[in-house]
Amino acid sequence: MTTEPLTDLAALGERFTRDPYPVYAALREEGPVHRVRIPEGTDAWLVVGYELGRDLLADQRLSKRWSRASPALGIGKVSAGTSMLSSDAPDHTRLRKLVAREFTARRMERLAPRVQEMTDGLLDAMLAAPDRTADLVEALSFPLPMAVICELLGVPFLDREKFRTWSGQAVSSVDPAVRASSAEAMTGYITGLLADKRAEPDEDLLSALIHTADEDGDRLSGDELIGMVWLLLVAGHETTVNLITNGVHSLLAHPDQLAALRADFSLIDNAVEEILRFEGPVETPTYRFTTEPVEVGGVVIPGGGELVLVAMSDANRDPARFPDASRFDITRDARGHIAFGHGIHYCLGAPLARIEARTAIRSLLERCPDLRPAADPATLTWRTGMLMRGPLSLPVAW
């Protein structure tokens, strides 16, 4: 039984959802480890600050396996099958080895011309709007990464609206029942996709995942295939949707930085890194559970499956690591940010996310020289929960 005081983040409501950074900074001033109640309704240990947070992301004493979670937490698994996100070494090592060769930076760069083609088509449609306004999420941020990952997997006829609803609810709803029902629906849908692809294989990633084997003949089991497709479809679009949206939102909110980028588009790669640092798409990573007592910054987090969350959004704004960290500056050296995680769970799709973000943001700005917000930023509705961070819509005009 812990005697640590509990900070109820859930009680902060919309204020915390819209702008969690001051709350994290205040906690960081008090110390690196805090007992909190998260908006999803569960009690957890929250770690703030860069150094300790980064260390914990690579700490093997924290397990990603849901079977390690304490029953007292009252939480259920929200993803389907067995994936890299819900496994530890050596199982994680084996799963990653079976798919990593499909996601090398070199292979992803080959997709860049196709990403540009898709972006151009979406912008053609958006710019045809007679009132010269659009919701950027609907017009570009959502359809681009969804189209890319579907084409990569070889799923051309995905019911995207159903999928979008299930995916969004599974990762962002604060209602456990909604998360569970969405995960169940997604599992059934993915099972059907896999059955179709087994019946009619093609030269795509999904067919490759079904039939791939390493030099020892190891291959993904049925449950692992479901988990891998879940991971690729959900993580392959949810994070990039928010990366693109957050990037445009941050640039519009900082006209000097927007002007600097327009004046020199060679800054685009650096700008994407600063967007990832300043307003990354993932606020806290997927759940980790203690397998033994873990001391962090002088606080002992008990073993037995306690939930531990690293506030990656706060780590990336820790002034001890990034000088003047609360300032958005596309010329700064943002290397070292942990927006894609750290350690063995570092995001497999990071190279593709970077390609999509740089292509979408640069193309949008080039084709819309007078792009501007079409709504008061204070009225934007942000994703709930502490996993994904980004506005649900971003009205723009040109």
Rank of each mutant, 00 (worst) to 15 (best):
E4S: 10
T7P: 11
A11I: 04
E14M: 14
P20T: 09
V23K: 04
A25Y: 10
A26S: 14
E29K: 15
E29R: 15
R35C: 04
V36F: 00
P39K: 06
E40W: 01
T42S: 12
W45M: 00
W45H: 00
V47E: 07
V47N: 09
V48P: 06
Y50I: 07
L57K: 05
Q60P: 01
K64G: 05
A69Y: 05
L73A: 08
G74E: 13
G76E: 15
K77F: 04
S79H: 12
S79G: 10
A80V: 05
A80W: 01
A89N: 14
H92Y: 09
V99D: 10
M108K: 02
A112F: 08
R114I: 14
V115S: 02
D120T: 12
D120L: 13
A125K: 14
A134Q: 06
L136V: 09
L140G: 03
F142V: 09
P145I: 01
M146T: 10
V148F: 03
C150W: 01
D159G: 12
F163L: 07
F163V: 03
T165P: 03
Q169W: 00
S172F: 02
S172V: 02
S173H: 02
A177L: 14
E184C: 11
G188K: 14
Y189P: 00
Y189L: 00
G192Q: 12
L193R: 01
A195L: 15
K197H: 14
R198N: 13
R198F: 13
A199Y: 00
E200C: 13
S207F: 04
L209V: 00
I210H: 03
A213Y: 06
G222E: 15
L225T: 05
M228Y: 09
W230S: 03
L232K: 05
L233A: 00
N242G: 11
T245K: 02
N246H: 04
H249N: 11
S250P: 02
L251Q: 03
H254V: 09
L258N: 05
F265C: 00
L276R: 03
F278T: 01
Y287A: 09
R288W: 07
R288A: 03
T290C: 02
T290R: 05
V296R: 04
I301T: 06
P302F: 08
S313D: 00
A315C: 11
R321D: 13
P323E: 09
D324E: 13
R327I: 08
D329W: 00
T331Q: 15
A334G: 06
R335A: 13
H337I: 06
F340M: 06
G341V: 04
H342F: 15
A350S: 14
I355A: 10
E356A: 13
I361P: 03
R367K: 05
R372Y: 12
R383W: 08
G385V: 11
R389Q: 04
L394G: 03
